Amino acid sequence: MIRTATAADVPVIHSMVRELADYEKALHEANATEEQLHEALFGERPAAYAHIAESDEDGEIVGFALWFLNFSTWRGVHGIYLEDLYVRPDRRGGGHGKALLRELARICVERGYERLEWSVLNWNAPSIAFYESLGARPQDEWTVYRLTDGALAELGG
């Protein structure tokens, strides 16, 4: 079952964000607090949205998708950028990840959004194979750039 996240889900979402960061070998970079996540999802001006995957058997939360709106100047409409998609390792293969992506695709279609986009680490072969099995294609002509920490402060200061 897929449902919209509630404020009560923030602790488990935060825990799964940390699990994902650990899987991606970057736990040391996952500094967001539960309070920050709560504000981003449920504050006065939400910056992001989340959906929860619950097990049909026992109702346990087994995964989540956290996303926000982007905008295409070429298409003139919003799209969804999927920041995190995570299903706990012992629950993978049960269709939860596909159900989460299906829900985001449904939202795109319903609202007239023309893109559902995300990034995946080059070494994450199981996820790449999963995404490609759904019809997703890599945008390998683009390279992602990022400013953080000292470089961001220097440019912005």
Rank of each mutant, 00 (worst) to 15 (best):
T6N: 06
A7D: 06
A8S: 07
D9K: 08
D9T: 05
V10T: 06
V10L: 05
V10H: 05
V10Y: 05
P11H: 03
P11W: 04
I13R: 02
I13F: 00
H14G: 03
H14D: 08
S15P: 05
S15N: 04
S15L: 07
S15R: 07
S15E: 09
S15D: 11
S15G: 04
M16V: 00
M16G: 01
V17R: 00
V17F: 02
V17S: 06
V17W: 02
R18I: 05
E19Y: 01
E19D: 06
E19P: 02
E19A: 01
E19Q: 01
L20N: 01
L20T: 02
L20W: 06
L20R: 02
L20H: 03
L20M: 01
D22S: 00
D22M: 00
D22H: 00
D22I: 00
D22W: 00
D22F: 00
D22V: 01
Y23T: 07
Y23C: 07
Y23A: 04
Y23H: 05
Y23I: 02
E24K: 01
E24I: 03
K25W: 05
K25D: 09
A26P: 13
A26G: 11
A26N: 10
L27G: 03
L27S: 08
L27F: 03
L27Y: 04
L27I: 07
H28V: 07
H28P: 01
H28Y: 07
E29P: 03
E29A: 14
E29T: 12
E29N: 11
A30F: 02
N31T: 11
N31S: 12
A32N: 13
A32M: 12
A32E: 09
T33A: 09
T33M: 12
E34Q: 14
E34A: 11
E34W: 07
E34H: 09
E35Y: 10
E35N: 13
Q36W: 15
Q36L: 12
Q36D: 12
L37W: 13
L37I: 13
L37N: 13
L37T: 12
H38W: 09
H38Q: 15
H38P: 14
H38N: 15
H38Y: 14
H38G: 15
E39T: 15
E39R: 15
E39H: 15
E39M: 14
A40K: 10
A40N: 12
L41F: 11
L41R: 14
F42V: 13
F42Q: 14
